[in-house]
Amino acid sequence: MEAIINMVLAQMQPLLNGHQLKQLAITLQAALEHDRQPPKEDPADLLALFLTAKEVEGCSPKTIAYYRTTLEHMTVAVAKPYTQVTSDDLRSYLSDYELKRGAGKVTVDNIRRIMSSFFSWLEDEDYVVKSPVRRIHRVKCAQVTKEVLTDEQVESLRDGCTCTRDLAVIEMLASTGMRVGELVRLDIDDVNLQGRECVVMGKGNKQRPVYFDARTKLRINEYLALRHDDCPALFVSLRGEAKRMTVGNVEARIRELGKTTSVGRVHPHKFRRTLATRAIDKGMPIEQVQKLLGHAKIDTTMRYAMVNQNNVKASHRKYLE
Rank of each mutant, 00 (worst) to 15 (best):
E2H: 03
Q13T: 15
L15T: 15
K22M: 13
K22C: 11
Q23C: 13
I26M: 12
Q29S: 14
H34V: 09
L47D: 00
L49W: 00
T52R: 06
A53Y: 03
G58M: 09
A65K: 06
T69M: 11
T70R: 06
A79Q: 13
Q84P: 06
D88I: 15
L90G: 04
L90I: 14
R91F: 10
Y97S: 14
G102L: 11
K105S: 13
I111G: 01
F118V: 15
W121Q: 00
L122S: 02
L122C: 10
E125F: 00
D126R: 14
V128P: 03
K130G: 07
R135A: 09
I136F: 02
H137Q: 08
H137W: 08
V144K: 14
K146R: 12
T150Q: 06
V154Q: 01
E155R: 08
R158M: 15
T162K: 10
T162H: 08
T164C: 01
T164D: 03
I170G: 03
I170N: 04
E171Q: 12
R179T: 05
V180Q: 01
E182Y: 02
E182F: 01
D187C: 07
V191T: 06
V191Y: 04
N192L: 11
V200E: 00
M201S: 06
N205E: 06
R208W: 08
R208K: 10
P209N: 01
N221E: 10
N221L: 11
A225Q: 13
L226Y: 07
H228L: 15
D230T: 12
L234Y: 01
F235L: 13
F235V: 12
R239S: 08
R239C: 05
K243D: 11
V247M: 00
V247F: 00
R253L: 05
E256M: 11
V266F: 05
K270E: 00
A276L: 09
M284A: 01
L292F: 10
D299M: 13
V307A: 13
